[in-house]
């Protein structure tokens, strides 16, 4: 746990700074009310009415998000593998594989191929095209 204390300290500093800035902002500047100024900016045209609760996201971004999740999870699996796969130095100073070795390689190959199969499918189905 101690490892995270410095991060906490920094977070307090940064957070304090950020919140202070946001909080102080209304008081440092002038106040000149103007209706048009407070409308959403749309290059001078009447602002498009936005639905309460936020607008809809285009579907395209949803797909990107889904793909991201899949690959991010893949990364999560790659990291521990990479760390375990890395050779280490034994007492005599030689670099050796102590653990996964070839097995790890083959398994990861299979894993990546499986992911690539899905990736290929998405690609062919134009899931990666942005038009």
């Amino acid at each position: 746990m101690d490892l995270y204390v410095p991060i906490l300290v920094l977070a307090v500093l940064a957070g304090g700074f950020a919140i202070f800035s946001v909080a102080i902002a209304p008081f440092t500047g002038p106040k000149r009310w103007n209706r048009a100024k407070l409308d959403a900016y749309e290059c001078g045209i009447e602002p498009t009415p936005q639905p309460v609760g936020g607008g809809r996201f285009p579907l395209k971004y949803m797909i990107t998000a889904m793909l991201f999740i899949v690959f991010d999870i893949e990364i999560i699996f790659l990291y521990p593998w990479a760390v375990s796969f890395a050779p280490e130095t034994d007492d005599v100073g030689r670099t050796i594989f102590s653990g996964l070795g070839l097995f790890g390689l083959v398994e990861m190959l299979l894993f990546i191929i499986t992911v690539l199969v899905a990736y290929a499918y998405v690609w062919r189905r134009k899931g990666l095209d942005w038009d």
Binding site: L10, A11, L13, A14, G15, F17, A18, I19, S21, V22, I24, A25, P26, T28, G29, P30, K31, R32, K37, L38, D39, A40, P47, Q50, G54
Partner: peptide, 28 residues
Amino acid sequence: GLKEDLFPNTVDKVLYLLAPVIMVVPAF
């Protein structure tokens, strides 16, 4: 700091204020 702090009519107030904080703290 000396500019007027605009607060557009339609925004979701809490998140609007929180967003810059959320952006900057993790960056540190």
